[in-house]
Design a protein around this nucleic acid. Structure first.
Ligand SMILES: [Mn+2]
Ligand SMILES: [Mn+2]
Ligand SMILES: [Mn+2]
Ligand SMILES: [Mn+2]
Lengths: 254, 254
DNA sequence: GTTTAAATTTAAGCATTCCTAACAAAAAAG
DNA sequence: CTTTTTTGTTAGGAATGCTTAAATTTAAAC
């Protein structure tokens, strides 16, 4: 049961390692930047988390999550993403409003409560941004390889499969130009000068910088119309529907 | 936006003043005991909260909430009780499981999110323990005068209208003997020796100590079958029912 | 291979929030 | 009206988590 700070550090370290794919050692500077704290603060916290057994730390080199650290980080990410899905699908918030709320709620939710939410939502596999939700044992759902915008070829059609939600401003912009999960886009052209991309969304062209595009991940559009974002686990949906329909029993009868 | 600690102190001060009815000055010791911290810690925090304008403090006498302190305290209580009702009515937790969860969630919930929850629940007026939920402006719903068990007369019937949920152990015991909101009870007898009361619940007799009984509040049972616990505000129910039925739109269509 | 630059850690200090022990004021007992 | 007990405040100290500034180590340039 780490503190809120420790949970946020562990989550940041996981996310950085996850983005780096290979080379899973995470540096002090990367963590400091993601959490918007000083490198000194990060250096101190890294030492404390190592003493607590969440990290392996090689001085001046970087850190890796231990098994315990990985379990803990995945559990926090699970709580975060389950709350995000709850906020959109049950309370009707929009996908750009939920990240900030979940950033707080993730630290105030017992495992018991998360299991109840998970069951209520029908054991969802992806959050509203297309990010995978670890199950209670820390296992991630299978995901096909996704292409960042910079890897999408001109003249081809794709569907948006995932958005990184770190910047609220960027999420608002994406929403404004009509981007949403599973929306079909056509890659019109790419400027070699700055590696920006022109996308056609709902008949309108938009130019996205390389940096902005790196937050968008696509699946090639094929004629099978395959959506990998089935929201719930196989077999869980029926159960969820029953549960949802018997809600709010009404304590008084009046 | 006080810290979690400050919010819990303000809430405790409100609750103590509320229980004391008249004589609304709250002492350091009372706060220290409710929050299970030292008197020294309370004394320090009281001074800080006074400097911040939440309290008026007369040294060695006690504290009263300022208007700002009252507003803040009622807002935290609103968050707490809305979460409690959500947890029972939507997620299906039992009334003795929700207080501890809400004690954390109350500090991680924006006003924006609370309004969404409030709307989803249909602007409820009471939490699962029969405690009133302040509206967004801090106004409490009307409540008829309730009788603590010690004031209930032998030979008469009552309905349980409110339970104080400070002790999980006590809540579990109450649940075990069949007590729930609006349950009808018959007061069989009272022992002058220790002021304990024998209650008949669902045909079985149970002896409750004076201290335990002080956590239970009743309404006289009259033949009109009047339940004051209508869960939602007048006029809000229809809206809530519509909202509840269109839940979980299902993002994929699959 | 030095020298310079960048990344990392350590040092010193501040704000919160808690503790125990010592002290001061108020209330209760006698 | 003293004396004793209870209540409330202050003092001193610890842990957490952050800051800026000063080392220290590693990496990059020349
Ligand atoms: Mn998120
Ligand atoms: Mn967070
Ligand atoms: Mn409660
Ligand atoms: Mn609380």
């Amino acid at each position: 049961m780490p503190t809120i700070s420790k949970e946020d550090y562990l989550k940041a370290i996981y996310r950085i390692a996850d983005e780096n794919e290979k080379e899973s050692t995470v540096t002090t500077s990367e963590v400091a930047e993601m959490l918007d704290v000083s490198k000194a603060a990060t250096s101190e916290m890294v030492q404390r988390l190592s003493e607590l057994g969440y990290l392996n730390h090689e001085r001046y080199k970087g850190v890796k999550l231990t098994d315990e650290g990985m379990r803990t980080a995945l559990n926090i990410i699970r709580r975060h993403r389950i709350w995000e899905l709850f906020l959109t699908d049950v309370l009707g918030l929009s996908w750009n409003e939920v990240h900030a709320e979940a950033e707080l709620l993730e630290h105030s939710t017992s495992d018991f409560l998360i299991e109840k939410l998970d069951e209520f939502l029908g054991h969802p596999r992806f959050n509203p941004h297309g990010e995978p939700i670890p199950d209670r044992n820390g296992n991630l759902p299978e995901q096909p390889a996704l292409l960042p915008l910079s890897c999408c070829e001109t003249g081809k059609e794709y569907r948006l499969a995932k958005v990184l939600d770190d910047s609220l401003e960027l999420m608002n912009y994406f929403t404004g130009i009509g981007l949403a999960l599973n929306v079909k886009v056509l890659v019109k052209s790419r400027l070699d000068y700055d590696n920006s991309t022109v996308l056609c969304i709902n008949g309108t062209n938009h130019n996205l910088s390389e940096k902005a595009g790196n937050n968008l991940f696509f699946l090639p559009e094929n004629d099978e119309g395959y959506f990998y974002h089935s929201r719930v686990h196989q077999g869980a949906r029926k159960k969820a529907e029953v549960k949802n329909s018997k809600k709010s029993p009404g304590r008084t009868g009046a």
